[in-house]
């Protein structure tokens, strides 16, 4: 068994309006950042999982993301195993 660190990013699905992202995007020109678009706000989670290998760790994290961290009606989760790095 190894200990794997995972990063889960939860984003609103494409097509679901994101008032938070839109508000951030509108604030950027006032700070002098022009040409920035497509801002989407989301959530990030870091967690540690015990699993035989990184594939198994990924499966566990994908399942818990689907069942709890994201609401699949409006959000999608993407999982990265960040340590130890895949061999």
């Amino acid at each position: 068994m190894g200990n794997f660190e995972a990063l889960v990013e939860v984003q609103l699905r494409p097509g679901i309006s994101d008032p938070q992202g839109a508000t951030i995007e509108r604030a950027l020109p006032a700070l002098g950042f022009t040409g920035v678009s497509g801002v989407r706000a989301g959530k990030a989670f870091r967690l540690q999982v015990e699993a035989p290998d990184d594939q198994a760790a990924r499966r566990i994290v994908e399942e818990l993301s689907e069942r709890l961290l994201a609401n699949p009606v409006i959000e999608a989760a993407s999982v990265s195993i960040i340590s130890p790095p895949p061999a």
Partner: peptide, 11 residues
């Protein structure tokens, strides 16, 4: 119930 409730449009 179907669907979801997200942040108000005007935040």
């Amino acid at each position: 119930l179907p669907g979801a409730l997200q942040k108000n449009k005007g935040l």
